[in-house]
């Protein structure tokens, strides 16, 4: 089993005729994902790479192809509009890869999505992969292997790195979700944890957080209440000075809660095992499986 994406995905690619869109649509198809439609306003009617029909609007694409999910490679100034268009057509999940969307645009998107049964992943993320089943993202498939560990991460490269290390020692993943590095994202750790907890195919969860915001503390509160599966975590940015933005728009320590140490403390307090380096994660996951012990105790 897996979360978010599997064989039932009929994927629409918004921005399919652009460089990024073309490159990664090919990658998704190679992985076995069913890419049923593309949307590029003004280019409707063409057949992309002689295999995928392109439409002018999402509405039209959905009507003709029964697409049920979207991946967005639209430049930042137009990306929020693309998310609205996909949400308006009730596609879910919507995976937005685009980096650099203005925060106020994302506030509007988040408000619009509130109360709707539409899941947005990202923006500024590598997407989602359920190894062996489906890839809706830009990650390199070789790092992943089918299995039972769920991975969720604010950082794309760290998610690859950790997945590759798990794969190397034979531990596969149910689903790896790149949540995105922006301050306002569609799906947070809490929601990813909830999905992994409910998924019978996920036995252990890896959380990869970073400085900035309070998403890890919120995850800790949720884990305490609802998560019985073992959780291991790494928080990037212990060595980052306050007030400086570390690449990701959301990775900036503006208050005490945003510090890596505070996040580690909150997670450790609910029984999550904290890795000091991403390289420790695979061993933590392995020991929980080999010895049948929990990474997280139920005492809390």
């Amino acid at each position: 089993m897996s979360i978010l994406v599997d064989q039932n995905i009929r994927l629409l690619v918004q921005g399919i005729t652009g460089g990024e869109g073309t490159f990664h649509a090919r990658g998704c198809i190679e992985y076995g994902t069913r890419v049923v439609a593309g949307v590029t306003p003004g280019k409707g009617g063409i057949l992309w790479e002689n295999q995928v029909p392109v439409f002018n609007t999402v509405e039209q694409a959905v009507k003709e192809t029964a697409a049920n999910a979207s991946i967005i490679f639209v430049p930042a100034p137009f990306a929020a509009d693309a998310i609205f268009e996909a949400a308006d057509a009730a596609l879910s999940p919507i995976v937005c890869i685009t980096e650099g969307i203005p925060t106020s645009d994302m506030m509007a998107v988040r408000h619009y999505l509130r109360g709707k049964y539409i899941r947005l992943i990202g923006p500024n993320c590598p997407g989602v992969i359920s190894p062996g089943k489906c890839k809706v993202g830009i990650m390199v498939a070789a790092a992943f292997k089918e299995g039972t560990v769920g991975v969720c991460s604010r950082s794309g490269t760290l998610a690859y790195e950790v997945a590759a290390m798990l794969t190397e020692i034979g531990i596969g993943q149910s689903t790896c979700v790149g949540l995105g590095g922006d301050p306002i994202i569609g799906t947070t750790f809490v929601e990813a944890m909830e999905l992994f907890q409910q998924d019978p195919g996920t036995e252990a969860i890896v959380l990869i957080g970073e400085i900035g915001g309070t998403a890890e503390q919120e995850a800790a509160a949720f884990i305490k209440k609802r998560v019985t599966k073992p959780v291991a975590a790494f928080i990037a940015g212990s060595a980052a000075p306050p007030g400086r933005r570390m690449g990701h728009a959301g990775a900036i320590v503006t208050g005490a809660a945003g510090r890596a140490e505070e996040k580690k403390k909150a997670l450790a307090a609910v029984g999550v095992r904290i890795a000091e380096s991403p390289a420790e994660i695979p061993q933590m996951v392995q020991s929980s499986r080999v010895h049948g012990s929990r990474l997280r105790s139920d005492e809390d």
């Binding site: 604010r154 950082s155 970073e210 790494f234 060595a239 690449g247």
Partner: peptide
Amino acid sequence: VVNGAGLAMSVMDTLKL
């Protein structure tokens, strides 16, 4: 010199360790 913000931060962390 690193690719990826999260990876760059964790390289900094590992250097500190």
